[in-house]
Write a protein that binds this DNA or RNA. Structure first.
Length: 488
RNA sequence: GGCGACGUAGCCAAGUGGCUAAGGCAGAGGUCUGCAAAACCUUUAUUCAGCGGUUCGACUCCGCUCGUCGCCUCCA
């Protein structure tokens, strides 16, 4: 069974067949570095992180390139506002980006090229486009002559004449056609500048991706990805530039993920309804954000809210609780018969196959997670029926299934921590917020133990209520009293 | 205005024409307990926005209507 992925350009799911067998070349549009990243950027990073992990899990070699756009109108504007240089600004936010990625446990791309370090390639590509008549110089600017590129609009499904009808009137009268876009912009005083055949200037937006993907992945490569909002104009223009310059097919597979929304509205800088990655990670564990992201298919919109994050935290805890219980399982005592019925055994043993099938189908992580929760339920149920007389066979099945589950979750970057450590750390963190120490709790439990042994229920309940008022709940079990933190 | 996506239980969310419409959260019942809470188990949609059509058969394909969102301008 091949891995099939939805291809924006054909609007169908297609099998992934790398040009070089067994080796996938992937280019993802990264950030424009001028501000902190929001959770929309996190989704993008997480989706491609999962994709790369999955392809590698399936035995494919992946060359993963994700660029930085570090010269751009927005950077120039922001640097001026902050009275700093573009270099300082972009480097600062690239650093912040790397911190965010590390906090999210995102795997490093193989290459992270920056636009400013590839101006030579950019200039060469623009020259080639001018030679081919697809670009023209106008003053100190160079524009792409959109109506001469036959396939213009093929990715976004638009016709040039239709777009012109709705296009905003361009201030720049120099363009032959309002849809023409800048490949090179002459620089104004104080702006970053590179020498070029058209005078001092800087690259336009779009061209850097064409130049850098060509440099590292060749004229044609397998997958090009990014957010849905990049389909037009960014990716459409990249196709025009690259295919115009090389005459070859640019990217075979176009992958676009959906937006993160808040109250069903797209998260964006202009609406001001965005949350940064670091704001979210200050409140919730990174894996909870991963769980939220992967519980929706990557092409659908993902609505972010505190409630959905809390659900994710609960769900993650359920997974870790299960794994923790498995890790504490005793060894099998005798070789009595298995207590696991055949149907359940079959289900457990086929987990990986079913998971891979879901993932092969356009990376259906939501379905994959469903299978994981199914398995957790099976494992918990079996664990409870085992009792004292657990057989080696059953213990082995449980432990092996737990390992499979951890391995598959790892494709989504989940269950990456030791379960006991995770649960302990989460507890410790919450206790800190509650300003109570385990020692204090333990002391009160001891006091209550005495009261209980004297059957002084009134005092025992008083202590329990006292702790409850501080969000600590007690549980009396056969092996003594345990405590946990109350959910809000 | 042009193009596109989506509408599945109280909420979130899978479902590539045919098996009981996954899974999670919340709710209800239970195991445990002096009572209780956590964890765990069980349970929760005769029905997939509405109306037509294609088909032996439709949540799934087609058309229309209603609703939500997105792109067409910087955007992940």
């Amino acid at each position: 069974m091949p891995i099939s992925l939805y291809n924006t350009i054909t609007r169908t799911k297609e099998p992934l067949t790398p040009i070089e067998p067994g080796h996938v070349k992937l280019y993802v549009c990264g950030i424009t570095a001028y501000d902190y990243c929001h959770i929309g950027h996190a989704r993008s990073a997480l989706v491609f992180d999962m994709m790369v992990r999955y392809l590698r899990y399936r035995g494919l070699k992946v060359t993963f390139v994700r660029n930085f756009t570090d010269i751009d109108d927005k950077i120039i504007k922001r640097a001026a506002e902050q009275e700093t240089t573009c270099t300082e600004l972009s480097e600062r936010f690239i650093r912040k980006f790397h911190e965010d990625m590390a906090a999210l446990n995102i795997i490093q791309p193989d290459l992270e090229p920056k636009a400013t370090e590839h101006v030579d390639e950019i200039i060469r590509m623009i020259s080639l486009l001018i030679e081919r008549g697809l670009a023209y110089q106008e003053g100190s600017d160079v524009y792409y002559r959109v109506n001469l590129f036959e396939g213009y609009g093929k990715l976004s499904g638009r016709q040039l004449d239709e777009m012109q009808a709705g296009a905003r009137i361009t201030i720049n009268e120099a363009k032959e056609n309002p849809m023409d876009f800048a490949l090179w912009k002459g620089s104004k005083p104080g702006e970053p500048t590179w020498e070029s055949p058209w005078g001092p200037g800087r690259p336009g937006w779009h061209i850097e991706c064409s130049a850098m993907s060509r440099r590292y992945l060749g004229d044609t490569f397998d997958i090009h990805g990014g957010g849905k909002d990049l389909i037009f104009p960014h990716h459409e223009n990249e196709i025009a530039q690259s295919e115009g310059a090389t005459g070859c097919c640019f990217a075979r597979h176009w992958i676009h993920h959906g937006f993160v929304t808040i109250k069903d509205e797209k998260m964006s800088k202009s609406l001001g309804n965005f949350l940064t990655i670091r704001e979210v990670l200050a409140l919730y564990p990174a894996e909870a954000l991963r769980l939220l992201v992967f519980s929706t298919h990557y092409r659908n919109p993902l609505d972010y809210s505190d409630a959905s994050m809390k659900d994710a935290v609960t769900g993650l805890e359920r997974l870790y609780n299960c794994m923790d219980s498995l890790s504490k399982l005793p060894n099998g005592t005798d070789i009595s018969e298995s207590l696991i019925d055949q149907a359940t055994q079959d289900r457990l043993l086929s987990l990986e196959d079913r998971f891979l099938e879901a993932m092969d189908n356009d990376l259906n992580t939501a379905q994959g997670l469903g299978l994981i929760y199914d398995t957790v339920k099976d494992l918990n149920r079996i664990r409870q029926t085992l009792g004292e007389k657990s057989s080696d066979i059953d213990i082995t099945i449980l432990k092996e299934c737990g390992q499979t589950l951890t391995r598959l979750s790892g494709i989504m970057g989940l269950l990456n921590e030791n379960p006991t450590t995770y649960l302990h750390d989460q507890k410790a963190e919450k206790l800190e917020d509650l300003e109570i120490t385990p020692e204090e709790i333990q002391q009160l439990i001891e006091d209550r133990k005495i009261a209980r042994s004297e059957k002084n229920w009134g005092q025992a309940d008083e202590i329990r209520d006292l702790l409850l008022a501080r969000s600590i709940e007690l549980k009396d079990g056969p092996e003594g009293t345990s405590w946990h933190i109350k959910k809000d």
